[in-house]
Structure formats: C-alpha cells, structure tokens
C-alpha cells in the first residue's frame, strides 16, 4: 500500500479502497485530467463536485477503465484498488468492471424486460445457482433501487417503457445486482424527482455499509447530505479534497469557496 499523504483531515480507522497517483487523462490533444492524486476510503461515500466540463465524469470512468472503450482516450499514472494497479497488463478490465459498478448520467436500460435488465449482470457472472436464487437477487436489487413496488407486477414489461426516473432506479438496481465492491454513480439523480432522489440518497447511505460509493453531483445539497468526503475539480485539477463538512464550511481554496457559494460554475 502507498503511504499516501492524506489531504484534509483524515478519518481514522478507515482503509483506503482506491488510491490514484499522478493520474493524467488526454482525449487526443485535450488534457482533461491534470495530475490528480486522491485516496478514496472503503465504506465511504465520496462526492465529486465541480463545474461542467471539469473532468468529473472522465476521472470517474478511469476508476473502472470505461475510458478504454474510447479510442482517443489516454490514461497515465497509477490507480490502485486494494493496492493493486488496475492499469497493470495482467488486470482484466472486464473482471474489474464487475467489481467496480457504474451508474451513468443518462438512464440506459437495455431493450429487454425489467427482470432481464437486472438479471443481466448476475447471469453473466454466474452469481445465481438456479432460477429461484436469481429471482431473489432480482427482487433484492429492485428493492435496493427503491423501485420494487412500482414494477413487481410487471417484471416482464420492457425496461425502456418506464419513466425516466424509474429507468434510472432500474439502472441502479442493475448495477447493485452484481454486488460490486465500488459503485460509481455519475449524476444518478439528474433525471429524478425529489421523492425518487430521496429514495436514491437513502439507498446510497445504505450501500455505504458494504461498498465504497463515488458520486458525481451538481447539487451542493446532495453532496452535503450523502457524502462523507468531497472532492472539488476545476479545469481538470483536483483543487481540494477533504471531509464534506470541512469543504462546505471551511474551504481552503478560493476556487472551492467561489464554486460553493455560486460565484463560478
């Protein structure tokens, strides 16, 4: 393990789940992430905030190597999960993504039934021994996604037929069904109404007992409500990282201060 210098005041007793060292990301000639170092704790919710285009999604996608699917994207530096470099040649990105789940900015259910959407990951990874186990996983995941009551009578209906907010919760259910150790969420609530948002936030809080959750959000309130740690990105730089309460009450950097109070964004 790296003996990482903790930014902000470190929480004791927590172990570092993900640590990033000197991460640089280029899209062709665009330098999207500039030398980011950060340690993300296990069983913690970490919020990424920052103005649009500052590289939050890009950095999030580095953590499960989703950037591999973009031809022009180049990632350098080290990202370690449980002390293992995920950009090492021996690491299979497919295996990694099963461990590091992701919920996207835009809901993207497959054009399959609700049941098949949720069962997709468990089926691929052979998580269920038989049909009844699979049924259980699907139900449990849909409950965690706070959507079970709305869809329990129509599990055979296509997932694409749900409303935008329902689709997003279905995608969350789909992501937790594979039991990832880390869950990356890119603005998961941008399409949700306040009630569904509250449900998802409750879910995130609950997931914290088992997973590390990283959430990108444009809502300061949401970041303050759900996260224990907050990272502020600006123009590809990680400007400030620390306890959420400290970032919101006593930011060290002027840019953070300005963003939180609404002066840049």
């Amino acid at each position: 393990m790296y003996d990482a210098p903790q930014l902000g005041n470190a929480m004791d007793q927590t172990t570092t789940k993900i640590s990033a060292r000197n991460v640089q990301v280029h899209y062709g000639d665009t330098h999207a992430i500039k030398d980011v170092n950060v340690d993300i704790d296990a069983k913690t919710v970490t919020a990424f905030i920052g103005p649009s285009g500052c590289g939050k999604s890009t950095f999030l996608r580095c953590i499960n190597r989703m950037n591999d699917t973009i031809d022009i994207c180049r990632v350098t530096g080290d990202i370690l999960i449980d002390g293992e470099d995920i950009y090492d040649k021996r690491v299979d990105p497919v295996q990694l993504r099963a461990k590091v789940g992701m919920v996207f900015q835009k809901p993207n259910p497959f054009p399959k039934s609700i049941y098949d959407n949720v069962a997709y990951g468990p089926r691929i990874h052979g998580l269920a021994k038989n049909k009844s186990e699979l049924d259980e996983i699907v139900e449990k995941s849909l409950r965690r996604g706070a959507i079970w009551d709305e869809v329990k009578d129509r599990l055979d209906a296509p997932g694409t037929g749900l409303s935008g907010g329902q689709q997003q919760r279905l995608c969350i259910a789909r992501a937790v069904a594979t039991e990832p150790e880390v869950l990356l969420m890119d603005e998961p609530c941008s399409a949700l109404d306040p009630i569904a948002t509250a449900q998802v936030e409750e879910l995130i809080d609950e997931l914290r007992s088992q997973f590390s959750v990283v959430i990108v959000t444009h809502s300061m309130q949401q970041a303050a409500r759900v996260s224990q740690k907050t990272a502020f990105f600006h123009l590809g730089n990680l400007v400030e990282f620390g306890d959420t309460t400290q970032i919101f009450t006593n930011p060290q950097d002027e840019r953070t201060q300005n963003y939180i109070t609404g002066r840049i964004g």
Partner: peptide, 27 residues
Amino acid sequence: VPQSMRDGSYGLGATQSETVKQVILPA
C-alpha cells in the same frame, strides 16, 4: 444502437462478445 447501451453492458463487466450477443444484436 446507442453507445449508452454498450456502456451499460461493459459497465456491468460484460465482455465484448457478451455485449454483442445479449444487448446489441437483440436491439
């Protein structure tokens, strides 16, 4: 077929051929 379908499948740890077979071709 929207890129987001592929992202969704890869994000769940599916391989390329699993994605093609189970998501892209049906769609």
